[in-house]
Amino acid sequence: MTGIGGRSPGIGTGFRGVAGVEPFADALARHGLSLVRDRVHTLQVNTGYLCNLRCRHCHLEAGPGRKEMMSRETMEAVVSFARRFPFQVLDVTGGAPELVPDLPFLVDGLAPLAPRLMLRTNLSAVSGAAWEALLALCVAHRVVLVASFPSTNRSQADAQRGAGVTEGAIVVLKKLNAAGYGVDGTGLELDLVSNPVGAFLPVSQGSTERKFRTDLLRKWGIAFNHLYTFANVPLGRYRTWLLRTGNYERYLKTLTEGFNPSAVERLMCRTLLSVSWDGFLYDCDFNLAAGRASADPKIHVSDVRELPSPFAPIAIGEYCYACTAGSGFT
């Protein structure tokens, strides 16, 4: 049977030669740590890089011009893979998954296979009849919606995502509330994700959630369930922006200085597998962005017969500092 793992956890790309940046593997060793698998319970499905936005912080460089998109055939292989193993969480992401024509097929196929099915949305990819149909499908399957909403300050949010995007997102959030999402007692979960709009780390998740809850309710009457704050990972378009603005080295040093050894045990890559738009497996969406598959040669979901065992190695790179700075990316 074909399993996953068994290759050396290599050192990543892009960070070497930056003064003051200790290799991530050395930082782990200095604290007596290693980054290895726990029991896998989450499957993240990246449906492709097509997106209506060109967000500054995007580690995948998703955008309107991207052609990579998950086919119906690959979706069938992903559903079959999820059916073979006891995943507790299925997480559909992109790009903008809403722009993938066969997304309803994927949602229908995955919904019965795990207690929790999540769909990530930028709140602006589709509108009109397409949006209404997608909303009805999500309500029917009790899909958890995870929405990107970087700031309650419109100018800051638009600086990251594009002019006028925040106004449209507010309209969609109101419609989601009207459908029951984010409203107590409905069982329809609406979570928000906020990434910093500049070259700095996020502030406390607890205080940010309180601010968002107060601001959204006061300004627009919007409710949600949870908010998560994550550091931006210096890959893709965000890395390009850091280099162009002269913030690259400073941001890397900020990440390394914020290294929190206590965050390593709870990193999402320890319990997650990520499948790319073309059906190959990665340890996480960031390794996917870096082109570092979970095995060499890389493995397609249709060929996998067993999940990686606990203590199997995970491919690491210096960009992993973004997931271990402060409270970590868990």
Rank of each mutant, 00 (worst) to 15 (best):
S80D: 13
V193M: 02
R120Y: 11
V79M: 05
L273N: 13
C55H: 00
T93L: 07
P112N: 10
N232M: 03
R266E: 10
K298I: 15
L145K: 03
R39C: 04
S276F: 13
L110A: 06
E209D: 09
L90Q: 01
R72G: 08
S194A: 15
D26L: 08
T166S: 03
Y238M: 12
R213Y: 07
G162D: 00
Y321K: 01
R305V: 08
R56C: 03
R161Q: 10
V264D: 12
N122C: 06
T330D: 01
W220S: 13
A322D: 12
K67N: 08
H57E: 02
R244F: 09
S294Q: 14
V197N: 12
A82R: 03
L243V: 14
A263C: 05
G14H: 14
R210W: 04
A322W: 03
S204N: 13
S80P: 01
R218P: 08
T256A: 14
S127V: 00
V233R: 04
G48L: 11
N52V: 04
G236M: 11
E318T: 12
G236W: 14
L134R: 01
M268C: 08
L255R: 10
F81P: 08
P234S: 08
A290V: 13
S207V: 09
A178H: 03
N177M: 01
L119V: 01
N247A: 15
A322S: 12
R7C: 10
I299S: 14
M75P: 01
F329L: 05
S262Q: 08
K211I: 09
P23G: 08
G187Q: 09
L113P: 00
H31R: 10
G63T: 07
W241V: 12
P308L: 14
G20L: 10
R239E: 15
T186I: 03
N46T: 00
L106E: 05
A289M: 07
E167N: 03
G326N: 01
E98V: 05
T121E: 02
E306S: 15
F87R: 00
G20W: 10
C269R: 14
A315F: 07
W131C: 02
L117R: 07
A82M: 09
D102S: 14
A179H: 02
V183C: 05
T166G: 01
L242A: 09
L43D: 07
R292S: 14
F286I: 00
R54Y: 06
G187I: 08
E73A: 15
G236K: 11
D38I: 03
P86R: 13
P9T: 11
R83D: 11
G182K: 04
E61G: 06
F15G: 05
